[in-house]
Nucleic acid binder design. Structure first.
Lengths: 302, 302
DNA sequence: CTGATTGTTCAGATATGGTGAACAGATGCT
DNA sequence: AGCATCTGTTCACCATATCTGAACAATCAG
């Protein structure tokens, strides 16, 4: 009989492309994975992998088998979730959540607090990471729920097998050092800020791209970005302490905005959407966590 | 992660009721089964079995898990069948058939001959046994196709999960020793045969029950059954050699009826139906065998 | 050409899963 | 009631399967 353990290796190699990556993901040596796949091929009676350059790729028989493997492993997971639920008499089991920094702070952490009393048998594991990194891990069952963000001008494509729900849609604010001359008016035209020093996320991130686009398109200037961090709290602190400007969403602002001035850009409506990704098949525990995340999401002005 | 091997043990214990039976069916010692189930319970985190008297029964958690197990094992089987088919480029893999004696001789054997050329990669395994015995084994995946028979007055109930197809509907004939006075007419009234010595199947079989009912109802006598065998060819030989009478279906008569007279009973239409059982989910190989069985079924007068 | 990848093979340590004997409780026969 | 005979479980022990790490071959980038 086919062995689930080996099928999982096959799925992982299929999903990650290399034996090394699959081995690393599952905590084995590449040697072990290679040997087990060889056994699987012998059982299958036909080659499942073929080498292409120094990598491996699934053969058509491998593709057929991996399709079954994915369904079977999904089924096993459902069985385990059901079992945990029955054993505890209510939604139970481990649930792995990933979210980007501000969502961890403002959404996931409060949700965990809610779940601690409403669903004490659900064990939530949280990883702070960006959607780009973790979305593939959702399909590979490394995570069960992934929170992501998306700036209006850069919609993310999401795999058809996944389910996406909006958690909130928030405004982006201009954060200026308190006492900056432009901070007197409630709405600040971007083109007045050409001389400002800026704090923004690392190049390659959505926030940075949005920042550059806004300055170029609405301000007509190339921003002098001097402070780089993917940590919104650091960006905020650079505004407060080092006199920089920043473009930050509601979630990054926790209300204690002493030392800074939070203003809206004039003439532009900049928005960010925060959403939740899950696989289509949801266990009771995942369902409970999803509900808690919705409940814990702060209402911010749209 | 849950282990398929252990889930199969659970399914078998569920299906067969005792640890011993499950162990015997899978070729293990009861000790091994007991130990593996203990491991499964530890993994599940909740009891799956409870002792009732000297047997075991599934707990509600066990029931939940076994439902998943059945689905998963079905999925694995589908995967293996698909794999065999892909590997061979056509329907392939082992298929286990069971049938009662006359069906093996007249239907299954010819079907195997057909399949040898039409589907050389399908490996047919045949077991001669009665439906009563093998039908449960169909649900337990011990067999893939089961041929059964049913006398008109004793319809068999078939489990809703199984699929039943009629293969043929045949007449029952009165088999008399050649030269018996009543064998002169084409149709023989049953009540003329009160003094005959009879050959019939063992008590408890459908044929025996039918035989008794016919003699009592249409002949008004208790038959003197002296020769008992579930082997129709032996019953036929007792008619030929020992001068007994018998009630046999078309399939039991192979046309070489020297030494006997085959007549229809007068005033009664006795019929037997031969049918095919499979699980609802059929692999390509099972489909091919089912088609061959239909094709190989002889056309007999209804 | 060299160095850094990739996947595979081999020898050896370790864990897993099997058997069979001994045991305890339930049932049924005399 | 008493004994034999079923259950299923536990234990010690053994075989096999599966992991690791080193050595190897092939590919690719600089």
């Amino acid at each position: 009989m086919l062995d689930l353990h080996r099928l999982r290796l096959l799925r992982e190699v299929h999903g990650r492309g290399t034996v090394h990556a699959a081995a690393a993901a599952l905590g084995y040596s590449p040697s072990a994975v290679s040997q087990q796949l060889a056994v699987l091929e012998r059982e299958a009676g036909t080659p499942l992998l073929e080498r292409t350059g120094r990598n491996v790729r699934l053969t058509s028989a491998g593709e057929v088998l991996v399709t079954h493997a994915i369904a079977l492993l999904e089924g096993v997971e459902a069985a385990e979730a059901d079992l945990a639920t029955v054993a505890a008499g209510r939604a139970a089991g481990p649930v792995r959540v990933s979210a980007f920094q501000s969502a961890v702070l403002r959404i996931v952490a409060p949700a965990v607090r809610l779940l601690a009393t409403s669903h004490p048998d659900v064990r939530v594991e949280v990883t702070e990471a960006e959607v780009e990194v973790t979305a593939p891990g959702l399909r590979l069952h490394q995570y069960d729920l992934v929170l992501g963000d998306e700036y209006d001008d850069q919609p993310r494509v999401v795999h058809a097998e996944l389910r996406r729900e909006r958690l909130l849609r928030e405004r982006l604010h201009l954060v200026l050092p308190a006492g900056h001359p432009e901070a007197r008016s409630r709405r600040v035209p971007i083109d007045r800020l050409a001389g400002l020093t800026w704090a923004a996320c690392q190049p390659g991130t959505g926030q940075r791209a949005m920042h550059l686009r806004v300055c170029r398109q609405y301000g007509g200037f190339e921003p002098d970005v001097r402070y780089h961090s993917d940590d919104f709290r650091i960006l905020l602190e650079m505004a407060r302490t080092a006199g920089a400007g920043a473009l930050l969403p509601d979630l990054a602002l926790d209300g204690r905005d002493t030392g800074i001035a939070v203003r809206l850009p004039a003439g532009v409506a900049l928005r960010r959407e925060v959403f939740l990704l899950t696989r289509r098949a949801r266990t009771p525990a995942v369902e409970a966590v999803a509900a808690a995340l919705h409940a814990a999401t702060p209402r911010v002005g749209t």
